[in-house]
Design a protein around this nucleic acid. Structure first.
Lengths: 365, 365
DNA sequence: GATACTTCTGGAACAGTTCCGGTCTTGTGC
DNA sequence: GCACAAGACCGGAACTGTTCCAGAAGTATC
């Protein structure tokens, strides 16, 4: 044969080089370890129906244990995915998604990975595991977007042990890797800023997705009020969908309140913009009649005048860090390593906050 | 052998079934047709250096002629790419990119394709052809973003014959497939609308990328003026980069003009938003002191008050149509079919246009 | 002119997937 | 109880594409 040093791969009877046999496990290596044929292992990976349940379980366990890597021919394909629970890149969340994508693309340059966009709901068959799904798509790792309704999906993926990292959400589960921006300190500073200006009745316009980010912002709001000795009035807390129209609803609600509200903190970029627009529409002068603090993922706060005072988080940095960690973990083969990082947010004072006009009875026309 | 009807594949000496041998060409089929080994064909596909120039040319010609499709094992992978000349998903162009992406993802559902994001500048090696590049990335077709500096790249790809479609740009070359929104009629209507309100000195704020879309908008502006018998004053035409700050420059320029300007048409979404913000900052009332018409890819025109009168194009529809055409062309195997489609834009009158205040001598403070 | 070096190509040995057939179990009719 | 049928499950073989190694062919050098 004349191929230099060769050994017989255990069980399979195929001649191969000694170095490769131990470095990267193949379908045939897994098959021989489990006393199965390569065909059966391949069937498990592609979720073919005619394979026994217990056999499938054994193969999947082995796959995630030894860190199997699918190849095309002899080449390893370096692809990671950005997986959404449903439609990717929805515009309702403002500029968060494009900024995130941009950061991920930059982070992938380091290890020369490519990015694939996946829609889990559409493509994943109900009877396949997440590992099977991702393997079938030919990807080696996944960046996950997390919303309120798919936290259980995230923990399932972590349980299976497939390389994954969640962006912009926090988990107590030590198996879940995530990178998020901590909105709490900046949100608290934002409300403290309003309090220091003399505001006492401050409304909170919450995005109703109830992910950990928005919970942080609410906590910042409540803690700032509590420390200042101000009461937390639940009638001032509004939970709405994201978007411009909800901002309008918020302003209308504020104007309709019997006790005047002099400031509002909106935890979603579009909501704050909607508040600003509706305020002009109804003759409410910002910041004289109403102070507005928003949250911004990119530079939407600059679209309006006065420029919006806002808690800003760098969505691009989230994507960058997530992609860097994921790809490095994959190429180093450190499947067990964990990532639970938090990057800071900032609070930026612009033109929409000022001391309340004390003598007014009610804001509005 | 017991595999039913079998034939000897010409030249290669490998036994295969008759049906598959004619339907989808493989590396070995191309090799035998050109009297080469599969190894050499594979080397061409992966741009290995040690293959003769003339051999590479022959293989590449054959590849694009017979429509070779790379497979993983025996499976055909259905992946298309969205390729950018440089960094994907830049935020300077407003919400165009996310809307486009969203539309593409919807369009891919029909034929169950996946999407990969590619950066041509980063990943394409200088000495490989585009066909080699795309094959190496395992994709079957590509949606191309086009800017002023990469039109030659687009025609090169079309020359090679790789399945491709350009979004949001127009080409005279019959080989280039594209889907674009025609900004001309709506732009012209926009300026005619301003003229009908009584405006005579109308500024044009151009995005300096000089792609066909922006050229259309300029033509609409000039034709509307010409048909109304108004002179085209080149001092009223400003070419700037996209972005909020250029909008500020536009407004400052307008205020500094000796003859008062009563209306402005901005061909870029962010520029119009910047004009609106700067106008408020400098005490210019829109639309009383200045009428503003913008262009919008999504719903940025709703961020301000009054809502922006704008030419709107549906970037999501562009992506949808491009993805639908590309994937259907690929699965039907109609490599020669052409797509040069134009979808309409609309002109939406909102709150930023009104009759000029005739007696004023100069806008602004 | 012999040698050494480079360039290029083919064969074989890998990588994963799928078709076909065989074995084993289970259900059914008599 | 037994023959037969049907289905579940799995292995071998025959395909995909890729890469290593050896060798052929050409070229430069002394």
């Amino acid at each position: 044969m004349g191929r230099g040093k060769s050994v017989i791969d255990e069980g399979s009877g195929v001649v191969k080089r000694a170095v490769e046999a131990v470095s990267v496990p193949s379908v045939r290596a897994i098959a021989s370890r489990l006393k199965l044929s390569p065909a059966t292992v391949s069937r498990v990976l592609n979720n073919h129906p005619d394979v026994d349940h217990s056999t499938r379980e054994r193969v999947l366990a082995c796959i995630n244990q030894v860190g199997y890597v699918p190849r095309v021919g002899r080449r390893i394909t370096n692809v990671v995915a950005l997986a959404y629970p449903d439609e990717p890149v929805r515009s309702e969340y403002g500029a968060f998604e494009p900024a995130l994508l941009s950061g991920i693309m930059r982070g992938l340059e380091d290890q020369h990975f490519d990015l694939k966009l996946l829609n889990i709901r559409r493509d994943k068959k109900p009877d396949e595991t997440f590992t099977q799904f991702f393997m079938r798509k030919g990807i080696r790792g996944v960046v996950l977007r997390c919303f309120r309704f798919n936290r259980s999906v995230i923990t399932s993926i972590a349980e299976e042990g497939f390389p994954a990292v969640v962006v912009a959400a926090e988990f107590d589960d030590p198996r879940v890797n995530f990178i998020r921006a901590d909105s709490y300190p900046s949100s608290r500073r934002a409300v403290e800023h309003l309090i220091s200006l003399g505001h006492k009745r401050i409304a909170l316009a919450m995005h109703n997705v109830a992910d950990s980010d928005h919970a942080d912002r609410r906590r910042g709001y409540e803690d700032a009020l509590f420390r200042a000795g101000l009461p937390i009035d639940h009638s001032l807390v509004m939970e709405l969908a994201a978007g411009l129209t909800s901002g309008e609803q918020v302003l209308d609600s504020i104007l309709g309140m019997p006790e005047p509200v002099t400031a509002v903190f909106a935890t979603n970029p579009m909501t704050a913009i909607g508040i600003m627009r509706r305020a002009r529409e109804r003759g409410v002068l910002v910041p004289r009649d109403l102070s507005v603090v928003g949250v911004d993922d990119s530079d939407v706060r600059m679209h309006v005048w006065p420029r919006l005072t806002a808690v800003t988080q760098d969505a691009s940095a989230l994507g960058l860090e997530a992609a860097l960690w994921l790809t490095r973990m994959i190429v180093k083969g450190e499947r067990g390593s964990k990532c639970q990082r938090t990057i800071p947010t900032t609070f930026e004072v612009n033109g929409t906050t000022a001391a309340p006009a004390a003598r007014r009875k009610s804001a509005g026309q």
